[in-house]
Design a protein around this nucleic acid. Structure first.
Lengths: 156, 156
DNA sequence: CCGATAGATGCAAACTATCGCATCTGCATG
DNA sequence: CATGCAGATGCGATAGTTTGCATCTATCGG
């Protein structure tokens, strides 16, 4: 806390969130750049942001940032398991900081979106890991199908 | 087999596959068009075709067909549960005629694709139906995560 | 603190997907 | 078989996403 020089960390990693990200990126051999810090800063758990939403917010803090950078960074964060990337069927994919896993059931017919309890998904996660050794990152699943009302309407 | 006149069916629904589709479309109040029959004809179980693949094949049989029609028709078939629509992470979504449900595990790190036994997925399907009355159409799931090798490499 | 360099960013173009609207057509009806 | 119309298609425009390449920079070694 006392004799930490600015030169110690190449960038302004003052907030704890940014510092946490910076450390995490370095740990996996990724570079820490202003763009990456700001992009992560725009995301939060519970907020479904499109790539364009993220771009708009990032631009206010970092004018001149490029759309490609936003897309590439979001994909990187997705691969690193920092954020979830989900197609809810609304045209653009949504990005969200991962906190508690949560999922959605989306009706093909009426478009209704229900929440799906992660407790129902967890056994699948466990089974996959046990059977294949594959560690699934299912933090934000979107399953399509028919809601109770539409299923009845379609069959009957 | 004997006294069936051509006028009985508005289009060339000679093959059994096409006839089956035609019947199925009519049953749910959808029209039977040449485009729809040809587009379905290009799909098969086990083949992962992109929209562009489908378009290219359809074009040889039906010159002048439009990309939009292919996209719209593929979406329709998806909603009808005839085909599966899956993002395997390769840039474009893939379409496939539904036969036996099958799923994929895709490694975020090395890109490896493993098959996932539907028997592991079925309990989730059942649980969702029991809890919410929602009937999920999970015929071709793509779950991202880390394969055994990469999971080890990442943690250790 | 400086120079070297692997890797990130900016930029433009290409690719993937969707949408609005005018026209055309399957098919139900008479 | 002729007619009407809801709905499908073609077309162009636009939105959403990815990619190749030149330039720039975070990080490492001296």
């Amino acid at each position: 806390m006392s004799r930490e020089r600015n030169g110690g960390t190449p960038l302004a990693e003052r907030t704890s969130a940014a510092k946490g990200l910076a450390d995490r990126l370095r740990r996996v051999g990724q570079r820490v750049t202003p763009q990456r810090l700001v992009i992560l800063g725009t995301l939060s758990p519970g907020a479904h942001l499109s790539a364009d939403d993220v771009f708009a917010r990032v631009e206010t803090h970092l004018p001149g940032v490029n759309r490609s950078t936003v897309y590439r960074t979001l994909e990187l964060f997705g691969d690193l398991g920092l954020i979830s990337v989900t197609d809810l069927g609304g045209g653009a994919r949504v990005f969200e900081l991962i906190d508690e896993p949560h999922h959605h059931l989306i009706c093909h017919r009426c478009g209704a979106i229900l929440e799906l309890d992660d407790a129902l998904v967890d056994p699948l996660r466990v089974a996959i890991r046990a059977r294949y050794g594959f560690v699934p990152a299912v933090d934000h699943l979107a399953l399509f199908g028919f809601c109770a009302a539409c299923a009845t309407a379609t069959n009957g």
